[in-house]
Structures are given as structure tokens and as C-alpha cells.
Design a protein around this nucleic acid. Structure first.
Lengths: 103, 103
DNA sequence: GAATACCACTACACTTTCTGTAGTTGATAC
DNA sequence: GTATCAACTACAGAAAGTGTAGTGGTATTC
């Protein structure tokens, strides 16, 4: 059945949605807006996320240009994940989710 | 590691995120904002979604109070899915995704 | 009046994704 | 030297998503 008024969902909306439509992504982003930068900071802020899933999400967000990964040459070496400009733009989405959530 | 400033992700944000963090949800919502109400309208607007997944998403959105399902006693009987107030409130989230998506 | 098409799905086998727990490597803390 | 931390990886099993076929009752087309 065709809907006279329904346009198909635009490709770019699908692509952006694909980023969010995986478990824990919103929480990981929330944590980063709260200041988390290190693996275990994300882990503790997000709570129940399994480490394998967190690792995967961080790689995906890096690949998507939302986070940048920096290895800091200290002893022991540390890793930091920092928001990119792109990542900061996503805050509006997470804020909208949070606004929907409370109330 | 504890992050002095990171608060744990609030439970209600997790719950709201859980709604969105499943494949196709954003597209299904988009379609409903565009005026889709019937199964095959959603199907055509969303495109590549498998019918089983669409059926499942519609049930979940109904359970979440985002859509309401009405069976219309015509020949053949039809089904309509209409946005609830709650569902209309979610539009801000989808709009934010769309805003992020273009450009 | 036979064949085809529409509608709103369901069924099923298969693949992908997610989960939970354990373990690794190298350094520092007690 | 025992324990702990940081940032992960490995792996088996569970859950979610995919693709295709089919269903049952109209309705439309030839």
C-alpha cells in the first residue's frame, strides 16, 4: 500500500539512526558529555555494559568520527577518548532523549 | 577508575534509550510522523525492514505507549497504528537525529 | 469464474549482535 | 610477594535481526 503523503525515510537519516540503534550507545555518549574519557570511566558511568560491548562501541564511535582515541605515553600508558566536533553535535540528540526520559 | 565528575547514567535515560536502541525504530517513528498508519505504509516508507522485524517493532512501540493499535472493521479489516501523546513527544528526538543527519 | 493481487501479518532457519565471565600484560601499592 | 589497576581480549551461549515463503480472506482484472 502506498501512502500518498509518506516520503521514504531519507538515506542520511537512516545512517545517523544506525549509529544510535545499537545497545548502550546513548549511555556511552551521555557518559562522554559528563566528562568520561577513559575506558573504566565509561564502564563505571554506564554500569551494566559488558567490557567487550563497550570496547566495540568505542571503536564504532571512533570510526564514525564521534570520538577520537588518544594513547598517552605515561607509565602505565593510558588511553583517552575525546569527543570530536561531530560528537558534540550529537549532544542535541542525547539531550532530547533525556528530556523525553524525565517526565 | 572513578571519574570525579561522572555521574552514573540515570535509570530513566537508560529506559528511554532502550526504546531507541533497536534497529529501525527511528525510521518507523519517522514514517509515523510522515503520516504512515498502516502496516504496508510503514513497510514502504522504511523500505528494507523485514516484515517480522516491523511487526515486532510495532508491538514494542505499542507496549511502550508510543503507538496505539486500532482494528477497523471494514472488509477486509484494516489495522491502524496511531501516535499517542507520548509518541508525539518523541518527535523531538527524531527531529534531533534528522538535524544531525543533514550536514 | 479463474487468476492475480492486496493486506496484515506469521513461521522458520540462518546470521549477527550482545552478554557474562575469565584472563592478559605490565606497572605500581601495600 | 600478593593484590590491584588499566585497558582491554577471548569465548561460549543467548538474544536479536534477516530473508524468504506462506496464509486466509477479500477484491480486482481478464
Amino acid at each position: 500500500m502506498r501512502c500518498r503523503s509518506c516520503r521514504p525515510v531519507p538515506e542520511e537519516v537512516r545512517r545517523a539512526a544506525g549509529l544510535l540503534e545499537r545497545r548502550w550507545v546513548v549511555s556511552v555518549l551521555w557518559a562522554s558529555y559528563e566528562g568520561a574519557t577513559r575506558f573504566n570511566e565509561f564502564k563505571q558511568a554506564v554500569g551494566a555494559i559488558p567490557p567487550g560491548t563497550l570496547a566495540q562501541r568505542l571503536v564504532e564511535l571512533e570510526d564514525a568520527g564521534v570520538l577520537e582515541r588518544f594513547v598517552i605515553d605515561a607509565r602505565p600508558p593510558r588511553v583517552e577518548y575525546r569527543l570530536t566536533e561531530e560528537g558534540r553535535r550529537l549532544k542535541l540528540v542525547v539531550d532530547a532523549v533525556a528530556a523525553f526520559a524525565d517526565r
